[in-house]
Each structure stands twice: as C-alpha cells, then as structure tokens.
Simulated scan of single mutants.
Amino acid sequence: MLNTVREQFWDAGYAATSLEDLMRVSGLGKGSLYAAFGDKHQLFLRALRSYTEEIHASLRRTLAEAPRAVDALRELLEAPIHARVRRGCLMANSTCELGNADPEVLDHAHRTYETTTEVIGDCVARAQREGDLPAGVDPMALARAILAAQQGIVFMGRTGVDSATLTATARSLADQLLSARSVD
C-alpha cells in the first residue's frame, strides 16, 4: 500500500496529490489513513524514506556485485536512461518541490545524498584498489561528481532528451570522470 501511495506522490508531486487521491490509491478511508499514517505530510515522508531505503539497498547491491568497480560506476551513469527517466528521481523531484519550504524534506535530501555519495565513494575506492582509477583521486570528491553527473542525466531525461543523446552524454561523462590516467 505504501508503494501505491509513493507512486501517486511520484507521478503528481506532493502539492498536486489530494487526500482523495491518497484514499483512492491506498484503499483506505480518511479516518483509517490518518490513524495509520498521521497527516498527508507524515505519509509523504514515510513514502519518501521507503523510496530512499530501497534505492540505497539496490545501489549497494549493484555496486558490490559488479565484477569490476569501474564498470559499475559507468553503469551508474547510464542507469537513469534505462529507468523511467521521464518521472525523474523522487528524491530530486521532492527536493525541488519542497526543499526550500520544508526543513524535514531538505534534511532527508541532505542525508540521502550523503549516504549515496558514501556508497559511490566506496565503489570508487574499490576501483582504485583494482587499479582502474588513479590512487591520488579523492574517492568522495569523485563520488560527488559522479552523482551530480547522474542527476544531470536524470534531469535531461525529464526534459525529453532522447535516449541516444542521453546514452552518448553518459558515456562521455564516464570517459571523463573515470579515466585511468592520472589527474594533475
């Protein structure tokens, strides 16, 4: 049920999702919805937290299971192209919509991006140990650059850029960010 609520917020955004929408997708009446989750804001935060928990678990698994870390990082840049890119990232969408007005969303976004950066940074360090990235590169700085590049791909997809252009862009970014040559 939380997944269907999350899908509603993801499709319509927080402000455009009405209580009636939430009752329809959850199958709960107004009283049951409030008893189970509190108000709309608390339900939204719970849906957002469940989304980021799933994203982090999937990211950890994908990066850890890749035979070579550098290949996993390349795939991370292309991942939005294969996903439902037109909807974008629920966390990024929510931050854009609510971040300036909602300190709880902003705090969650900050913690989410820091966790994501740490997970990617661990993969960068692994790629360094495997000899595919220079040892002198700061794993966290490169992880932030990879995350920023990936979110840029997501944004470009939301604007309607075609898959071929997104793929070429992601590969160009990967070539630039994940080069084995030493960075001066």
Rank of each mutant, 00 (worst) to 15 (best):
L90G: 01
A145Y: 08
L48F: 01
N3D: 13
Q150S: 11
A83F: 13
P80A: 03
T167Y: 08
T159I: 02
Q176G: 15
R61F: 08
L2H: 04
L48G: 00
T95P: 07
T62K: 13
L142S: 02
I153L: 03
F9I: 00
L178R: 03
P80Y: 08
W10M: 03
Y113Q: 05
Q151G: 13
L28W: 00
S179L: 03
P80I: 04
E130S: 06
A79M: 08
D71K: 07
G152T: 03
R84L: 10
D138A: 01
E114L: 13
H82E: 15
T159A: 15
R129W: 09
R46M: 13
D107M: 11
S32R: 11
A79T: 13
N100V: 07
R74D: 11
L59N: 07
L166H: 06
A135H: 07
T17F: 08
A79K: 12
E54N: 09
Y51N: 03
H56L: 13
C123M: 08
S172K: 14
R111D: 11
H82I: 13
G38K: 06
G157N: 11
R24G: 04
S182E: 15
L22H: 02
Q150L: 05
R60N: 10
R129K: 15
Y51V: 02
S32G: 14
T165K: 13
D184G: 14
D132E: 11
R87G: 00
F44Y: 07
G157E: 10
